[in-house]
Every structure is written in structure tokens, then in C-alpha cells.
């Protein structure tokens, strides 16, 4: 490295013009672009195309016109699943955000006990979604799991949490929160540590209490982080699918059917790949709209600066 720095010095000192610096040509990005195009963009095009076909997985897809789409719009389960998807997304966001914000700000303190506890709070991140869902699935058994002992404490006399509509939805929000709050806490912790201490010193001199300092300094300073974390939460809420598949399998009844679940079932259990692609297209539209809305409401520039500041 030292030679490179010497050269820089040489370039700066000397008045002689440096020759045109060689730059990478498009070949450097081509493999990545092709790869991405083939496995991500092509599927995006195909998913829309497939939505106008019927395909059982045997032979080739056959053109079906608007058949799948008219079915989609009259399918009450799709409507219900869309509602459930949005409900779970909003509820998860509304519980995870204040929790991770408060925990993150608290964990940003440099005290020893906070460091130790933060290390404990981090532990769920070491488990995969599948492991977490399967673990809680066992805990929620009404006869032999934790639900049998702890259920009565929270109003489920017979331990029947996951077999009731409200209980199953709450269980999903809880399990997803258990898994992801640590991650968002981490984001808030990092951001809170970057708030200049001098701001708080000034506030203390002004006689501001803890709450006022939090409201006037911490919250506004974390505004961009809230946006980033919320985006990740909302877009990531599509990954509820794994948790739902393993925790409730859509039940009880149709209470926890979400869009990806319907799509998976139509395709890989019903072999109706055309209809599954139609649901998938709806999913792409919902997902993209959500992301764009967040970006619009929060300001794209801020979003980009957070990402580019990495």
C-alpha cells in the first residue's frame, strides 16, 4: 500500500498530467446482470405471463386468458388473506417499532449491565425462522407445552391459544416479534449511539428531564432510522409465510391464511400453477406498492442516504 500512497504524493507534487485512468468496462457487471436477469427478472416477467395460463406442472402452460384473474377477484379467500396479511403487517409494525426503539435507545448506553443484557437480547437472532417457529409450535401445545402452564395466566384457561382465531394471530405477531425485535433493536442501538452527546448536555443545561430529552432529541434524531427499520419490517412481513406454515399451517380454519400461503398451496399442493402465479402477481403489486408508499412518504433521498452511507 505504501507505494500507492507515495505515488499519490508524486502525482500531487508533480505538475505532469496523469494519463487517463483505466476504468472497468461493462464486462465487469455483465455476469451479475445476466445472473440477476435470469433468476430474478425473468421470473418476474414469467410470473405475470403465467397468470394468463393454466399449468398443472405437467407438459406446457396453456393460454387461459383472463380466467385466473376473474377467479382471483371473486375469490373470497384471497380477499380474506389480503386482509389478514395487512392486519398482521400493521400489528407487527405497531408492536415491534416502539419496543425496538425503546430497547435500542436503552441498549445504546455504555453501562456494563446493559451490555450484558443486550448480549442476551441478541440470542433469538442466532436461530433460523424455521427453528423458532418449530420451537414455539411445541411450546404452544395445549396439553404438553408451555401453553398448558402459561395459557391460563393470560386468559386461555385450556391452553388453547393457537386453536383460536385471535390467539393464533397473536401467536404469529408474538413469534415474529420475538425473532425480529432483536434485529431492529440493533439498528436503533447503532443509530442512538451516533447521536452527539453534546445535544443531551445542552438539554440538561436547559433543565430538560429524561422524557423531554427523549422526545426532543432522541426521537427526531432517529427519524431516518425509524423509516429504514419500518421499511424492512413491512417489506419483510412477507416472510411471515415460513412462520405461518410451520406454526399454524394457516389455521385454525382460514384464520391465518396470508397471500404467500394461498399461493404456495395453490401451486405446490393443488398443482394450479397458473392461479398460483396470479396470486403471486398480486403479491408483487402489493409488495412493490408498499415499498414505494413508504419511500414516497419518507423521502427517497433520506432512504438512499441511509443505504449509501453504509
Amino acid at each position: 500500500m505504501s507505494t500507492a500512497f507515495e505515488k499519490v504524493a508524486a502525482v500531487r507534487r508533480g505538475s505532469r498530467r496523469a494519463a487517463a485512468t483505466p476504468r472497468p468496462n461493462f464486462l465487469y457487471i455483465l455476469p451479475a446482470a445476466l445472473f440477476f436477469g435470469f433468476f430474478a427478472l425473468l421470473p418476474l416477467v414469467l410470473v405475470v405471463a403465467l397468470s394468463f395460463t393454466t399449468w398443472t406442472g405437467i407438459g406446457d402452460p396453456e393460454a387461459a386468458g383472463m380466467e385466473n384473474w376473474s377467479r382471483l377477484f371473486s375469490d373470497e379467500k384471497v380477499l380474506a388473506a389480503t386482509r389478514t396479511t395487512l392486519f398482521l403487517t400493521v400489528l407487527s409494525w405497531a408492536t415491534q417499532t416502539p419496543l425496538s426503539l425503546l430497547l435500542g435507545v436503552w441498549a445504546a448506553g455504555r453501562q456494563r449491565n446493559r451490555a450484558v443484557l443486550s448480549a442476551v437480547f441478541f440470542l433469538p437472532l442466532l436461530l433460523s425462522s424455521a427453528a423458532i417457529a418449530l420451537m414455539f409450535h411445541r411450546f404452544l401445545d395445549p396439553n404438553f407445552g408451555l401453553a398448558a402452564d402459561l395459557g391460563p395466566l393470560i386468559g386461555f384457561e385450556d391452553g388453547n391459544i393457537i386453536g383460536t382465531r385471535g390467539g393464533a394471530l397473536a401467536a404469529i405477531v408474538f413469534v415474529v416479534g420475538w425473532q425480529f425485535v432483536p434485529f431492529h433493536t440493533l439498528i436503533y442501538q447503532a443509530a442512538a449511539r451516533n447521536i452527539p452527546a453534546v445535544l443531551y448536555d445542552a438539554a440538561t443545561i436547559d433543565g430538560a428531564g429524561r422524557w423531554q430529552a427523549f422526545r426532543r432529541i432522541t426521537l427526531p434524531q432517529l427519524r431516518n432510522t425509524v423509516v429504514t427499520s419500518s421499511t424492512l419490517m413491512i417489506v419483510g412481513s412477507l416472510t411471515f409465510f415460513e412462520t405461518i406454515l410451520l406454526l399454524t399451517n394457516g389455521g385454525p380454519g382460514i384464520a391465518t391464511h396470508v397471500l404467500p400461503f394461498l399461493m404456495y398451496r395453490a401451486g405446490f399442493e393443488g398443482y394450479e400453477f397458473g392461479y398460483a402465479a396470479t396470486i403471486a402477481t398480486l403479491l408483487v403489486v402489493v409488495g412493490t406498492t408498499l415499498s414505494l408508499l413508504i419511500v414516497r412518504f419518507s423521502g427517497f433521498a433520506k432512504m438512499r442516504s441511509t443505504l449509501e452511507g453504509l
Binding site: 430474478a40 410470473v47 403465467l50 400453477f273 408483487v284 415499498s291
Partner: peptide, 29 residues
Amino acid sequence: SLLASASFRVFLLGLAIPAQAVIIPVYLI
């Protein structure tokens, strides 16, 4: 290269594609 900057814009667009939504065509491929 124009191709490089165009590709980058496509990648940015790709940030919004949820992988789960395209498992059907990926399965086909």
C-alpha cells in the same frame, strides 16, 4: 459504460422484488 449504470438502476429496482412472490417461475426455470 452506459450498460453499467443501466444495470445498477435495474438492481435498485430489484430491491423491491420479494423473492417469495416469484417462486413459481423460479420453480419452472
